[in-house]
């Protein structure tokens, strides 16, 4: 198990280096000069040239990359052009909000998608299956930004039930411990703040998680349906195992393998979706930071944020690989 993880971790290093190079080059080749965009209209040509020199934009790209790379491996992702703050600390400030939102969305997707899929897969063509499939298609076909706007319109605009934007009501949040508001409120036993946090997160999380929920439901359904026809299911029944245990113990654990693959693949979609959803809901996460960095051509901030997303993605894939091994003994023991 340990060698398995070590091998996977080592494998990710070249991936990260390659991505950093790619992102750096892509950002540089995007049209628009940050010096032009960020300096005021009254700036002289000399001001612009000075700014370019200060940010190192007058040097060849590969020199810039080398500087960036050597600093990055020491944990310095550079300084934002626009805010003049260190990129790393800016991202770290915003990251908990994004992770909290994504985790909550996944939670919603798994808690509703998987049982619904198992339910439908165990009784193909029943009304439960038809309802589940309809629900699944709804989730898959709904663009998250549109769904988000519709939720705001209905729940905030018309019904006035939930706050339409932000992460908390000003002044209500507890002192940060972890940076995750929901977790912090629980740690502080501040139930009012917890309730407030839930009210804020529920809409963006539904908007972000519905797509994944639909896909999970469909995949779980087909996976369970397939597994229920396996010989070992007949063996379990022939042993006298009741139908509930046949399904939840013998079938679901085997059906989990494709489900986990899909969760892993969909996390990428979810992560990129969070960038849009954060913007729709003014969620103060790193996605919103990325959008504003792109608008301003804030090169170090763009590179830093995208790299952070890459790292998250790599870590998630690692976790998924380990989860495979936990669930499927055949992977665990194969050298």
């Amino acid at each position: 198990m340990f060698t398995y993880i070590t091998r996977r971790v080592t494998g990710t290093i070249p991936v990260i280096i390659l991505i950093s190079l790619l992102v750096f080059m892509l950002v540089q080749s995007a049209p628009g000069d940050p010096a032009d965009l960020l300096l005021s209209d009254e700036a002289t040509e000399q001001d612009v040239a000075e700014a370019r020199a200060r940010w190192g934009l007058d040097q060849p790209v590969w020199v810039q990359y080398w500087k960036f790379f050597t600093a990055a491996i020491q944990g310095d992702l550079g300084t934002s052009f626009r805010y003049a703050d260190p990129v790393l600390s800016m991202i770290l400030d915003r990251l908990p909000a994004t992770i909290e939102l994504s985790a909550f969305s996944i939670l919603i997707a798994v808690v509703f998608g998987v049982p619904l899929g198992v339910w439908a897969g165990a009784r193909p063509n029943s009304w439960a299956d038809n309802f589940g499939s309809l629900f699944g298609f709804f989730g898959i076909s709904m663009p998250n930004f549109w769904f988000g706007i519709m939720l705001i319109l209905l729940l905030s605009g018309v019904l006035n039930l939930l706050p339409s934007s932000g992460r908390d009501t000003y002044g209500i949040a507890s002192d940060p411990i972890t940076g995750f508001y929901l977790l912090d409120s629980i740690l502080h036993r501040n139930w009012k703040a917890l309730w407030d946090g839930l009210a804020h997160i529920i809409m963006p999380a539904i908007a972000l998680g519905t797509n994944m929920m639909g896909i999970l439901m469909r995949v779980t359904r087909s996976s369970v349906l397939e597994v229920m026809h396996e010989d070992y299911i007949t063996t379990a029944r022939a042993k006298g195992v009741n139908e509930r245990n046949v399904l939840w113990r013998h079938a679901v654990r085997n059906a989990m393998i494709p489900i986990i693959t899909v969760v892993g693949l969909e996390l990428g979609t979810l992560l990129s979706g969070s960038i849009i959803v954060e913007t729709v809901f003014s969620w103060p996460g790193s996605g919103q930071l990325l959008i504003s960095a792109i608008t301003a051509r804030d090169y170090p901030l763009i590179t830093g944020t995208v790299l952070t997303y890459t790292m998250i993605f790599v870590v998630i894939n690692l976790v998924i690989d380990v989860l495979y091994a936990v669930i499927d003994p055949r992977i665990r023991f194969d050298k």
Binding site: D231, Y232, T234, G240, V241, R253, N254, I327, D328, P329
Partner: peptide, 28 residues
């Protein structure tokens, strides 16, 4: 159905043709 479950695997047992697929791969 519950009565039948008490028979299966207890009074009447069954083994199958395909030993390769008749055991659940995720349990010892």
């Amino acid at each position: 159905e519950a009565g039948m479950r008490r028979i299966r695997g207890n009074e009447i047992s069954m083994i199958f043709q395909e030993p390769m697929t008749s055991l659940n791969p995720v349990f010892t």
